[in-house]
Amino acid sequence: MHSIGAYTFRLVMAGLIVGMSTGTAFAYLDPGTGSIILQVLLGGVAGLLLAGKLYWHRLLIMLGIRREEEVASTSNAPQDVQIDAATRK
């Protein structure tokens, strides 16, 4: 069972996740944008860390410390993946 607090936290996180890149469709079944975002939140601790990382980047953009392009390239950087992977050990 999930507490209301955890739920609200996850929901707020969800609202801050979505990136802006475009690409082609991959499957005959539409997974649903909202349902994909939710999967980050349903991914346990690793999911919350991923949500937190995405939130942090959005925050930097809002504060003008970082620009949109930098977020995309940073997210692509191998060290990001490694950091994320390390947190799951």
Binding site: L11, A14, G15, I17, V18, G19, M20, S21, T22, G23, F26, P31, G32, T33, G34, S35, I36, I37, L38, Q39, V40, G43, A46, L50, K53, L54, A72, S75, N76, D80, V81, D84, A85, R88
Partner: peptide, 23 residues
Amino acid sequence: SLQRRYADKPQNVRSSIAKAGFD
């Protein structure tokens, strides 16, 4: 809620999440 929120938005969330390290 999330489905409603993003129903009309054209973002490719799959790519964004993949880039962010979805595992």
